[in-house]
Design a protein around this nucleic acid. Structure first.
Length: 710
DNA sequence: TACAGAGTAAAA
DNA sequence: TTTACTCTGTAG
């Protein structure tokens, strides 16, 4: 009898392996049992990557658990091989990924693809071992970093960081572990108490309204250092690489009780390349490093004994994952903090309605600056209402840039001798065009989409369907003349430069983003999110994009506009000047003038509650062909309190315009029934995928908490 | 009407 | 890749 893997002996000890296969079909989103061949007994540890035969195919999967017996009635197949004994799926991350999948009506496989980077064999071989192996006597051991094959933790068990008695949790051996004082946190009434809670390992959760200025990375670093000094791990998530560089520098500056030759923290970004990315990720998994800072994907970093999660600027749309099941970093980190009993520090200069919702629900407490500190630090903001209209007009911009704005810039450059930040609309908004006579927005004759100029084309084209509008005439007044509705950044730079001859003009945005500008007088033209930091702060800022932002037909237009304004204004030095070109009576303008993001957000949330909009309610979007939506929604068995809105034609987003017309239905439900809704939608997906009408024209996309809802 | 062999769908 | 089930053509 030849012994192929087929009939080789099965492991005597815990012969059954529960495996999550890496297939993102809803009806296969559950564990499957396999037999462990005796030869793989050692390697087949919970959390490791395996390869199994599934429906004839060899597929990748994760070994969740080892058990004595199986519930499965039929015959069990065997593990084909263990790809690596590295236990990459920890119980904590498994539980988190499962919750995220459930929350977003997605599959575990999809979430794990976001959470666990692809393996890189060389990196795995070379990465440093956990600190307890070569045992420098003073190395803090991390008993939970590498589960021994004997300990078979149930993946369902909620990991409790304190369950593991850590023998050396007492002293950090270094003579002077950084004993951070309150430092910048002294500027917040609740700051010292917040740090004290971190030091004691209590799961405090703060909705943070950062004081304007450049201190926020240092504040994050102090919170991280305090947590690390208490022997717990930290996850810090920021929107982009520039913010990460700032946090990285601040973490380096606080020197997180590191031992010689070992970093106290590690940065995780998407652009590291597979090897480096996996190498750094492994140092986290193995407990070598306990403080992680990174962009979105770092929210899943397998930090040991998590004590604190930090999310900076939670309203930034970069925190929304564009891949299924479209989780948002705020929701994931909140969930994670909750499950791990870790503290949370979420916020920024602005305040999102979602975070205000978390405060209203009692989940988080506000952490705001002292009023006198705010008064001292906030810039003086003035609105230039009657001149807003002028900003629409490129010609007027040249000739008569609003006098208040010009005067402010002139004073800042000449008297204060500092740089002036000019925030202009992003490229996306730049190119909308209007009738040259009556100013009606120019629309496509074919599909009604907005026309735009730009790219290589001199001829305007449709933003939706791409049709060129060479012989356009205005449908309202019949004029054939077009004009730019918005002035682009380059154009603004040129024109402002002319208004201030001799003053250097720097631009930041698109491909060329500046991180920092020197303290000398200069005009710094930037699009929202690309504003450089100025050494010593800007002397003034001109916010020219207000009407373009506020005019968007979006539920979040006001909140998003205020967020971008605050982020720009926070870069201005204390008592510097800000001029915003917008109607002074608008709530967003008021909130900027008074630097009151919390009040604005509370009103915003109240309004949305009244209108039945998120986050006061939970929404799901179902997108697909008309027939597919009808079938899907009809058969989904939605919870009683679910309310279906639409479907209405979905705006074609770029590449999808040549397919069957797609529609979108929204499903609204009270927040308390959110999980039930997700469950029903997931079940409906399962029914569909089991019938195999998955990918084709009958496909529907389910998205919970869609970003744009109106 | 019964049954072999091909074809097809599942999914441990 | 394997298995179990369905379909279909042909013999009885």
């Amino acid at each position: 009898m030849a012994k192929g893997p087929k009939d080789q002996a099965v492991s005597e000890r815990l012969p059954v392996a529960r495996v999550a296969v890496d297939i993102s079909l809803a009806h296969l989103d559950r564990p499957f049992d396999y037999l462990v061949p005796a030869s793989l007994d050692q390697a087949a540890a919970p959390g490791c990557r395996v390869r199994v035969r599934f429906a004839g195919q060899l597929v990748d999967g994760y070994l969740l658990d080892r058990t004595q017996t199986s519930e499965h009635q039929g015959r069990l197949a065997r593990l084909e091989r263990v790809i690596s004994p590295e236990p990459v799926l920890t119980p904590e991350i498994f539980a988190l990924a499962r919750s995220v999948a459930d929350r977003y009506a997605g599959t575990l496989a999809d979430v794990l693809r976001l959470a666990i980077p692809p393996r890189h064999a060389t990196a795995e071989r070379e990465a440093p071992a956990p600190p307890d192996a070569p045992a420098p006597p003073d190395a803090p051991a991390s008993p939970d970093a590498v589960p021994s094959p004997d300990a078979v933790p149930s993946p369902d068990a909620v990991p409790s960081p304190d369950a593991v008695p850590s023998p050396d949790a007492v002293p950090s051996p270094d003579p002077a572990p950084p004993r951070p004082g309150s430092g910048p946190w002294a500027r917040y009434p609740a700051g010292p108490a917040f740090l004290a809670a971190l030091a004691e390992g209590r799961p405090v959760r703060a909705a943070w309204s950062a004081l304007p200025g450049p201190e926020w990375p240092a504040e994050i670093a102090v919170a991280a250092a305090t947590t690390a000094a208490a022997g717990r791990g930290v996850v810090i998530v920021v929107p982009d690489a520039r913010d990460l560089a700032r946090v990285d520098a601040a973490l380096t500056a606080v020197n997180l009780g590191r031992r010689p030759g070992q970093p106290g923290h590690v940065c995780l970004t998407a652009d590291l390349g597979p090897a480096e990315r996996y190498r750094r990720w492994l140092t986290v998994l193995r407990g070598v490093v306990r403080v992680v800072a990174g962009t979105r994907a770092a929210m899943f970093a397998p930090v040991c004994q998590l004590g604190l999660v930090v999310l900076w600027d939670d309203g930034d749309d970069l925190h929304a994952e564009p891949r299924a099941p479209y989780p948002n970093a705020r929701e994931v980190l909140a969930l994670r903090a909750h499950q791990a009993q870790a503290a949370a520090l979420i916020g920024g200069f602005a305040r999102t309605a979602e975070l205000t919702q978390l405060v209203a629900a009692g989940w988080a407490k506000p952490l705001v600056g002292r009023p006198e500190a705010l008064r001292h630090l906030a810039p003086r903001v003035r609105a230039a209402p009657d001149e807003a209209e002028l900003a629409r007009d490129a010609a007027a911009m040249t000739a008569r840039l609003p006098s208040l704005a010009l005067r402010t810039a002139r004073t800042a450059l000449a008297v204060d001798a500092g740089p002036v930040l000019v925030q202009v609309p992003r490229r996306g908004y730049l190119a909308a065009i209007a009738c040259g006579r009556c100013r009606a927005q120019a629309r496509c004759a074919v599909c009604g989409g907005p026309l735009q100029v730009g790219g290589s084309n001199e001829v305007p084209g449709c933003h939706w369907c791409g049709a060129l509008a060479a012989d356009w005439t205005c449908s309202r007044c019949g004029s054939g003349r077009l004009r730019a509705l918005v002035t682009g950044a380059a154009r603004t730079a040129e024109e402002l430069g002319r208004a201030f001859p001799g003053v250097p003009v720097r631009t930041s945005g698109g491909q060329h983003v500046l991180a920092e500008v020197p303290a000398e007088p200069a005009l710094v033209i930037a699009t929202p999110g690309a504003e450089p930091v100025a050494v010593g702060g800007y002397a003034a800022a001109l916010l020219l994009d207000g009407w373009a932002l506020l005019g968007r037909p979006s539920l979040r237009a006001g909140e998003e506009t205020l967020r971008r304004w605050l982020n720009a204004a926070a870069l201005v030095r204390p008592a510097g000047s800000v001029v915003v070109l917008a109607e002074a009576s608008l709530p967003a303008v008021q909130a900027l003038v008074r630097w009151d993001p919390v009040g604005f957000s509370e009103r915003e949330l109240a309004e949305r509650a009244e209108l039945g909009f998120p986050p006061a309610v939970r929404m799901a979007a179902v997108t697909g062909s008309s027939a597919a939506i009808a079938e899907f929604v009809g058969s989904a068995g939605l919870p009683d309190r679910a309310e279906v809105l639409g479907p209405v034609p979905a705006e074609p987003d770029g590449a999808e315009h040549d397919r069957e017309p797609r529609e979108r239905a929204l499903i609204r439900i009270p927040r308390t029934d959110g999980l039930a809704l997700a469950r029903a939608l997931h079940a409906a997906q399962a029914a569909r995928s089991a019938r195999k009408d998955g990918g084709g024209p009958k496909a529907v996309r389910v998205q919970l908490d869609p970003a744009e809802v109106a």
